[in-house]
Amino acid sequence: MKPRTSPRRLPDQVFAYALLVPAFAFLVLFTVKPLVSTVVSSLYDRRDEGPTLDNYRLLAEDEVFRKALVNNLLFSVLTVPVSLALAMLLAVLLQRALKGKALLRAGVFAPAILPVVAVAVIWLYFYQPNIGVINEVLGWFGVTGPDWLGDTALVLPSLMAMMVWKEAGFFMIFYLAGLQAIDPELDEASLLEGTGRFTHFRRVTFPLLMPTTLFAAIVALADSIKMVDFVFVMTQGGPDNASNLLLYYIYRVTFAQHWPQYGAAISLLVIGVLVALAVLQIRLLDRRIHYR
């Protein structure tokens, strides 16, 4: 390689900007530009006449949207903490000295690497009311299982349970990493003091895992909104829109109904919520490592 001479060297600032060019080119192309055109598009009606606020007016009255929003909020608010709590529990259990630890870790993590659609296919069968595995197992105990996916009250919880099953192993890895960063002396100190397991977890492990929890919560929250693949395979949002989720609704409006303008209005609302959450979480992240 030719030796570089310093006079031709770019100033650091220019060099830094050059480094950012590829990332920002793509960010602009696939985030900024679509964001702007989403705003514009949302102000036009279906025949591209406008500007008008009709889409937003419709949004206020759209019951399907309201259902999808409520469903998605329920879905996020319940699956994220439950997945993380289970992941933490699993990590604490599988971090200990234990015969077959590697095998168990692999087993718990395995669902995490499966595509959501594959998971959905598997569980679609498990959840069948009359010929499904879960109800068959319940039948051994004399319990007549419900119609998991066919009951408007059960369909969302059933889907949540499935996603928790899929996601917990993934976040368990995050927590295993977090646990490894905790000095084992701390556990031993607790052991010597006779601190109970639960107390030790509550007073030591849990607070020390807080940074991991915040990080994982961001990922989990994003997943709870963007992983809607199972709706396509299992319920198509039904019955009675009881399992309709935001992204699935956006997809239906935009592509099945060919109404991108209204889809844009919904997208913007979702983005607004997401950005607000992101800002909130980044604030928390900023404040997270007081004691490090």
Binding site: F30, T31, K33, P34, L35, S37, T38, S41, I218, L221, A222, I225, K226, L247, I250, Y251, T254, P260, G263, A264, S267, V270, I271, L274, V275, L277, A278
Partner: peptide, 11 residues
């Protein structure tokens, strides 16, 4: 971080 491509799928 929070505006993933899927939300902007239409555009």
């Amino acid at each position: 971080l929070m505006i993933f491509p899927e939300v902007l799928m239409s555009e």
